[in-house]
Structure formats: C-alpha cells, structure tokens
Design a protein around this nucleic acid. Sequence first.
DNA 1: GAGATTATGTCAGCCATATTGACATATTTT
DNA 2: AAAATATGTCAATATGGCTGACATAATCTC
Lengths: 180, 180
Amino acid sequence: MADIISHPRSRIAAGREPADGPDLSHGAGDDIIELLFFAYRDFISDPDQILADFGFGRAHHRVLHFVDRHPGMRVADLLDILKITKQSLGRVLKQLIDGGFIVQKPGAMDRRERLLFATCKGAELAARLREPQSRRIRAALAGLSPEAHRQVADFLLAMVNESERQDVADRVYENERPRP
Amino acid sequence: MADIISHPRSRIAAGREPADGPDLSHGAGDDIIELLFFAYRDFISDPDQILADFGFGRAHHRVLHFVDRHPGMRVADLLDILKITKQSLGRVLKQLIDGGFIVQKPGAMDRRERLLFATCKGAELAARLREPQSRRIRAALAGLSPEAHRQVADFLLAMVNESERQDVADRVYENERPRP
DNA sequence: GAGATTATGTCAGCCATATTGACATATTTT
DNA sequence: AAAATATGTCAATATGGCTGACATAATCTC
C-alpha cells in the first residue's frame, strides 16, 4: 500500500540533480503558482457580496467592468477579452441591459455593430465593485518598495500570452486601440 | 438618450481633484485589476488541454495540486484552502480516488481523519499540469530584474486576506504547519 | 460508559456559467 | 446579387458551485 504513494519531499532533496529526463519536481517559480491561486481567490471574493445584492454573479462583474472602462466596446471585443462564447455572454449581457446598467448603440461607421456603454447606474455599480479591489491592491503595494508597482505590473503583463500581450498593454494603459 | 451614458474618460481628466465625497473613478492600482484578470486568465488556461485528455476540469487540478504538494493533508484542510463545500469537493475527490490519482489513509492519531496522498500516477499528472505554469512564470520573471521574483511573491502574499496570510505563507514555503 | 462533538461521506435538488450546434436578421463588402 | 460579417437566439448539455438533511465512525467530555 505505502509503495504506491508518492513522496514529493524526497524528490526535492537539496542539490539533487535529475539523472534521467527532465526534472518534473518543484522548482523556481512554483511558489508563485500557489500565491497566484490564493491572491486571486481573495481578490475576486471582494465584490461578491455587492453583486449578490443585485442578483448578479462574477460574469456580470467582468462584463460591466470592461464596458465601463472601455466605452464603445463592441460585442466582439468583449468576446475576445473574456474568451467565452457569444451564447454565454448573451444571457449575462441581456440581464445587464434589461437592468439598465448597460446600453447599446449602433455603430456610426458600421451599423451592424452594437457598441456598448455603461449607463450612470452601471458606472456607479462598476465603481462600487472596483473600490474594494483597488483598496486591496493599494494596501498590498503600500508595504512594498516604491518600484514594486512597476515590477508587479511588468510581471503580470509578461504572464499574458505573448500573442496578445501588446493588445492587453494598450487596453490597460488606455492607448486608444486603432481598429482596422 | 446620450445623457444617460456615463463618460469615464471625462472623470479622469489629468490633475482633477474630487470636489465632494470620495473619488470613485479610476486611480492608482487599477491597472493591476485588469492585469490580474488577463494574467490569471492565461495562467489557468495552460493545463486545460491536458485535463481534457483525462476527462477532468479545473476543480480536479486544484485538488490534485494541493494534495500532491502537501501530502497527508486532511479533507478539512482542503476545504479551508479551496473555500468550497464538502459536497462540491466530494464529487471531484471521488473521481480522483476512483481514477487512482489520490489515495486516502486513516490518520494515525485520529482515525476519523482521511489523510490524502497523491499516488505515483497522481504525482505524474500533477507534474505535467505544473510544468506549463512553471514555464510561464519562469519566462515572465526572466525578463525582469533579479529582485522581481521576491517583489512579486511579496505582493501576491500581501493580496491574501490578512487573517490567513501567515497560514498561506507557511504552506507555500513549506514550514511544516503545527496542527493544534 | 453515556452523550456530545467532530471528521467525513452521501443523497437530493437547485443555480450560475460555461459549452456546441443550428439557424435568423441586418448590414456591409465584393 | 451573392458572400461575408456582426449580432442575436433557441435548444441541449456539462461543470462546478450551493443549501439542507441525514448517516457513520471515532474521539472527547462529563
């Protein structure tokens, strides 16, 4: 029985070098794997209570956040960002529109497009949801060195898939995205 | 119609100070809100293809990861970490046990406890799942300054709820947890 | 030792959010 | 006119959360 049990600790004996094949045991950066899990777990839990008051879930938060931050966004842009299907987005977006948090306007150039905007009501909710998350981040950065904010932002950006990294940087830092 | 639309850009005009009440518009650290979303989105997408080959989802990954990393963990420990109910854990854990990835052993001190261990098969899968995430993290850190790893780890730890921060640090850095 | 508490498991049902596939409509492009 | 695009919608399904109720075995307390 005991012999079918893996003993990870024995595999990380100090200084041990793998004799054959790649070392699949724990290594540099593995602390970040767990820290990311715990940090994100608590980070996304902040707005849950507020959302519950509106009968919304985390999916509504994500949609409202991006529409509020990037007014005039197309539905297709949102699908690219969230990496979900239009059917999944559909229900959530419909609820936000029905509730008066988001409005749609046909595109001026291309009237097939439904450009998305947060209403004042929507912007207020987005701000309420953003507030505890901002507070948590500012508190976390406050205890660190002055350049930590930049280091952390650079790290997180470097964690994004290389193919989309520039798009994400443009979005986050508000360089207006040129749309072809 | 246009007057019910919020215009966030006007609220972040450079140097503007709020005249009344707290400033609920965007401020320091808000770039981190979005960067965390994008970084985590891509970070957790890495193992998805591997998991699909086994008919598993992200819930299985989380359970297997923590059991592999902390052998002899109790079911209650896992519930604390994942912050889910025992019913939710139950289904996923049962599948991992039935599939031979995890085994249970009664606790030596308290035979009510079911201590969890990854089998060799489970440890191998955990390593395969960890590999792309480790690679992504190492690549992200490689482009940064030498002290970035520490800064990022400190930041992520500081993002954890204060009440659990010490427990998380102990877990992540393998200081054996004293159990009362 | 009897009774309370604890650790775990399980049944049943519900909800949120994701999926795929098919099809409809309006609009723009070719 | 035909093809391609942007969006919306219907239907069915899966995952992974939840609550509530109840069962078992083991330990702790008096």
